[in-house]
Simulated scan of single mutants.
Amino acid sequence: MTTLRCATADDIPFIMRTERLPGYDLVVGRFGEAEHHARIADPAWAYLVGDDGFAILNDLDNRDGNVCLKRFAVTERGRGLGSRLMPLVVDWSFTHTPVHRLWLNLVEGNEAAWRVYGKNGFLKEGVRREAAVLPDGRRSNMIMMSILRPEWDARQRG
């Protein structure tokens, strides 16, 4: 069974190893150690870790209740780990924060992420054209998706 808990500074090495797995440089992003330490201590950010992955939320202090799922990664792609962890992240977000709109950006073409987010109630809001610069210098569109609290509530009621 997958579990989820708030991360501590002791979890930063695991988070850094995970976000640096092969291929993640194109779709996940990464922070340096000092940046992780600063953000994990900042109350506007939430770091969550599960058995096989992590999530980072930011803008918890957004006055309009718009919280960003900044980063989500699992230790092994293609094994269903994201499908098990993402519902826990979404539920945690709506039960532990005053979020109204949980939103994210994903690199266009990241079909695995698209499926995981869609299965968890995220809807496409739009495209940020050529908003990301990939490690090789190419530009990519970013797809913005979100789930609203009333949508999450409805999913909880079945």
Rank of each mutant, 00 (worst) to 15 (best):
T18H: 05
R20S: 15
P22T: 14
H100C: 09
H96S: 13
W152L: 06
E33Q: 09
D64A: 15
A131N: 11
R149P: 12
E130I: 02
D91G: 05
E108L: 10
K70E: 14
G82E: 01
M1Y: 10
N120E: 05
D25A: 11
R63D: 14
P135Y: 10
L21E: 00
R5E: 08
S146I: 08
V27E: 06
L102K: 05
W92I: 03
T8C: 00
V67T: 05
D153C: 10
G23T: 12
R17Q: 15
I15G: 00
A44H: 12
A34M: 07
N62M: 01
G126P: 06
M86C: 12
H36M: 08
R63I: 15
A73Y: 06
R20W: 03
R84E: 15
L148N: 03
G78S: 05
F122E: 12
N110R: 05
D59I: 07
G137I: 08
R138E: 12
A73G: 08
C6L: 15
S93T: 15
R20E: 02
R84Y: 04
G118C: 04
H96W: 06
L134H: 10
A112M: 03
L88E: 05
E130L: 12
N110D: 02
W114D: 13
H37G: 06
I56M: 14
M142K: 06
R5N: 01
H36Q: 10
L102Y: 04
A132R: 01
W152Q: 03
H37N: 12
L148T: 04
Y117D: 10
D52W: 07
R115H: 13
R71M: 14
F14R: 07
V107C: 00
I147E: 09
E125R: 11
T2Y: 13
R115K: 14
T2S: 14
E111M: 11
L81H: 09
